[in-house]
């Protein structure tokens, strides 16, 4: 954590990617709505969101695979739409499905990519060797990509994205289909990349974001619903909620005497959720229990984790949709299941 904080302080203020008011329509469907994104040098940004939230569309726009319906993308000060060739030199991209030719070997493929990315002939073999080493591809360099496992194909895809040492690496769900050991290695690699490149990462795995990202941006229905750095997150969300459980019946009037208590919510079977209006120490509840001779069965300080934030944001959204659906009495059940999926 201290390492990460130091890095945050050292961040240069220049934005490598600055996307303003991006909109994207697929026919009538408004996939990305007024999306803004800033990526600084040396930053690892996590893009989170449920399926179909617009993560992949956003990444495809940032890499020039599709052009935004409106809005502007500046890559290191170069307009991506007006000067695509120059802007794309700074980007390495791994799409959801690794764009690898199955009838080539990783070595042939990486040499081909080196040519596509204008790596000078004299540096090609060094660049390829470096990428092979970083993605641990050494044992498969001369096998056909089509015969490799999904994990290895994924790694060839990552090697392709970092081959030309781009300023910005954009990875769309890089750890999908990898075994746990490989996931750890790839996360380590992404963290390493964060030292001298900027990384945008999209994923469904929340712990992964916490493990490797400096900042997180949550997208739902094409809109940014949350954007903050982890350092900020910890500061802004001090824990004021405690869940407590007792072995025998306790009157919540006894709990009302606690200092700074705002609200007591009974969770049933002698469990209570206590909300305070100031940060508190859970130990005071232990003392209270001892004084009254209550048996304490649960004492839990509730931290606002990324998972909770994510669930709150996405879940409230689904709940409001459900409400809307309930007014339409005919097919309430159908709609809720649809949204839940």
């Amino acid at each position: 954590m201290s390492n990460r904080a130091r890095k945050n302080n050292a961040l240069v203020d220049s934005a490598l990617i600055k996307a303003t008011n991006l909109n994207r329509f697929y026919g009538e469907y408004h996939a990305v709505k007024d999306f803004n994104l800033t990526l600084k040098k040396g930053e690892v940004l996590g893009l989170l969101g449920p399926n179909g939230a617009g993560k992949s569309s956003t990444m495809q726009m940032l890499t020039g695979n599709i052009s935004p319906s409106s809005g502007e993308i500046m890559i290191n000060g170069i307009n991506l739409v007006e000067n695509p060739k120059q802007a794309k030199r700074q980007i390495g991209y791994l799409p959801e499905q690794p764009p690898v030719y199955r009838d080539m070997t990783p070595l042939e493929f990486l040499n081909y990519c080196a040519m596509l990315h204008d790596i000078p002939k004299s540096r090609v073999s060094a660049a390829v060797n470096d990428a092979v080493e970083r993605c641990v591809l050494g044992s498969v360099t001369n096998k056909l990509i089509g015969n490799l496992s999904k994990g290895y194909q994924q790694r060839v895809g990552i090697a392709q994205a970092i081959l030309h040492q781009p300023e910005i690496v954009i990875l769309d769900e890089p750890t999908v289909g990898l075994d746990p050991l490989q996931i750890t290695k790839i996360r380590q690699l992404i963290r390493e990349l964060g030292n001298d490149h900027s990384v945008i990462l999209s994923t469904h795995i929340l712990p992964e974001v916490q493990a490797v990202c400096d900042r997180v941006q949550i997208i739902n229905h094409g809109e940014t619903v949350f954007s903050d750095s982890f350092a900020q997150l910890a500061q802004n969300q001090p824990s004021n909620r405690i869940v407590v459980g007792f072995g025998d019946a306790v009157d919540d009037a006894d709990l009302q005497s606690l200092n700074a208590l705002e609200k007591v919510t009974s969770l049933g079977s002698n469990r209570f959720q206590l909300d305070f209006n100031a940060p508190v120490e859970p130990s005071m509840l232990y003392k209270l229990a001892v004084e009254n001779g209550w048996i304490l069965t649960e004492l839990n300080k509730q931290e606002e984790t990324l998972e909770q934030i994510f669930m709150n944001l996405v879940h409230t959204d689904n709940a409001s949709n459900t409400l809307r659906a309930e007014t339409d009495k005919n097919n309430t059940g159908e709609k809720t299941t649809e949204q839940a999926s």
């Binding site: 890499t63 695979n65 120059q86 794309k88 799409p95 499905q97 764009p99 596509l116 990315h117």
Partner: peptide, 14 residues
Amino acid sequence: MNKTLSLLLTSPLS
């Protein structure tokens, strides 16, 4: 079909 086109589209190529 194999989703490999994005390799060319992401590269600095017209």
